[in-house]
Computed example of a mutant assay.
Amino acid sequence: MPETHESPDTPVTPVDTVTVRAATFADDLALGALDRDTWSPLSAVTPPPEPPYGPYFDERHFPEDVLVAEEDGRLLGYVRLVPPTPLACNAHVLQINGFAVAEEARGRGIGRTLVRAACAEVLRRGGRRITLRVLCHNTPARALYEAEGFAVEGVLPQEFFLRGEYLDDVLMGRALTD
């Protein structure tokens, strides 16, 4: 589940020094560390990661699915895009299935930059829609996505029982073409 701590109303520092690029296998350790460092009950449906840590890239996660934001060679965030199903009739849709911004880089617009880069990447790949799932209590992420044109398209009530509480799974999406 994607998480962010950026508010759409918060002024952001320009991110002119940040570049977004496709991930490579060389990013494996940095992505794994970022994923572990940004684990939060706001977004995670799995327990906190514990050693021994496996690789970030595996049989389900590939470099070509990930865009990374970096500055001066340091990885500050990522967004992972995957097909929501293996069906050919659904190939025009990609789903955000991983999103993180390093804590020390939050509030600079990097999350917004990654969301916009994800939308551009979907279009580059010939897609027409982008979707995501977010926990109902992750209001910062939901606000960011709404500010970037995503709308709630469905709610799975009490889909998860986490830390003694039932939480809704909120499905959001946006069209990228008319």
Rank of each mutant, 00 (worst) to 15 (best):
T24N: 07
Y56L: 02
V68D: 08
L171S: 06
G126A: 04
L81T: 05
L31Y: 04
E146I: 00
L167H: 15
A30E: 15
Y145N: 03
R124E: 13
V79S: 03
L94F: 07
D65P: 00
I110D: 12
I96V: 15
Y166Q: 05
G149E: 11
V122K: 01
G73Q: 00
L81C: 10
P47V: 10
G107K: 02
L156P: 00
V134R: 06
G107C: 09
L81A: 12
R36V: 15
L114P: 01
A30Y: 04
L123R: 11
V45L: 14
L135P: 02
P49K: 04
L171P: 00
Q158T: 04
E6H: 03
P41D: 07
Y166K: 08
L135C: 05
E71C: 10
T46L: 15
R108S: 10
E103L: 13
A22R: 08
L31C: 05
A26E: 14
P49G: 05
E71D: 11
H92W: 01
V155I: 14
L31N: 01
A143F: 07
L31G: 02
E3A: 11
T10I: 01
S7F: 09
C119L: 07
D169W: 00
E59M: 07
A33H: 14
P63T: 09
E6G: 04
L29M: 06
F25W: 12
D27S: 05
A147D: 11
F99Y: 07
P41T: 11
E146K: 03
G107A: 08
V18F: 04
N90L: 10
F62Y: 15
C136F: 12
P14L: 05
V115F: 01
G107W: 00
L167P: 00
P157R: 14
D65C: 03
L42V: 02
V20A: 06
V122F: 03
A105F: 04
G77S: 11
D28P: 01
T4C: 14
E71Y: 07
W39K: 11
T46A: 11
T19D: 11
V66P: 03
T24Q: 13
T38H: 12
T177K: 09
V66G: 05
G127M: 05
L76Y: 04
T4Y: 06
E50C: 03
Y166R: 13
P49S: 04
E159M: 12
T19I: 11
N138T: 08
G109R: 07
V15A: 15
P86Q: 10
R116F: 04
H137F: 09
M172G: 01
V66S: 08
F57A: 05
L176F: 10
R174A: 10
E103N: 15
R60H: 15
P52K: 02
R112H: 06
L176A: 08
L132Y: 02
L34N: 06
P86G: 10
P8F: 06
P48R: 11
V15Q: 10
C119R: 10
L162S: 07
V68C: 13
V93R: 12
L123Y: 02
V155L: 08
G32V: 00
H61D: 13
T85G: 01
M1I: 11
V66Y: 03
V12H: 15
V45Y: 09
F150T: 08
L123F: 01
V20I: 15
